[in-house]
């Protein structure tokens, strides 16, 4: 699969700087650190739970930089009124994880 990632380079830079500001350990952010940030969006726990499911691609309870970008992308789109998909569309899967 050779699709461009839907997370644009300029968005990725923004998401990466948020990621770094949260104090990742070993390049990963735990759920404890990500949860308050996502709750800040004022989206429901229902929606945020689905965002987490779609973002934590390896299901290890932590997000790396690319997984975090997926989470932020979905949150931003949800805030713009777009529904969060039930499964992750291929263009949203980070190229590093295909």
């Amino acid at each position: 699969v050779d699709l461009p990632w839907v997370v644009k380079p300029e968005e990725k830079i923004k998401f990466d700087s948020i990621f770094d500001s949260l104090g990742p350990v070993g390049g990963m952010l735990t759920g404890d650190k990500v949860k308050p940030v996502l709750l800040n969006s004022k989206l429901t726990v229902d929606i945020l739970g689905r965002v987490w499911e779609l973002s934590d691609l390896d299901r290890d309870g932590m997000l790396d930089k690319d997984e975090f970008s997926v989470a932020m992308y979905l949150v931003y789109r949800a805030l713009e009124g777009e529904p969060v998909p039930m499964s992750l569309p291929p263009p949203l899967v980070p190229p590093s994880k295909r």
């Binding site: 404890d32 726990v45 945020l48 739970g49 499911e53």
Partner: peptide, 13 residues
């Protein structure tokens, strides 16, 4: 509900 029997890795559940 969580295959593998462990607890959820989802902090929102």
């Amino acid at each position: 509900q969580y295959p593998g029997g462990g607890s959820s890795t989802n902090p929102f559940l």
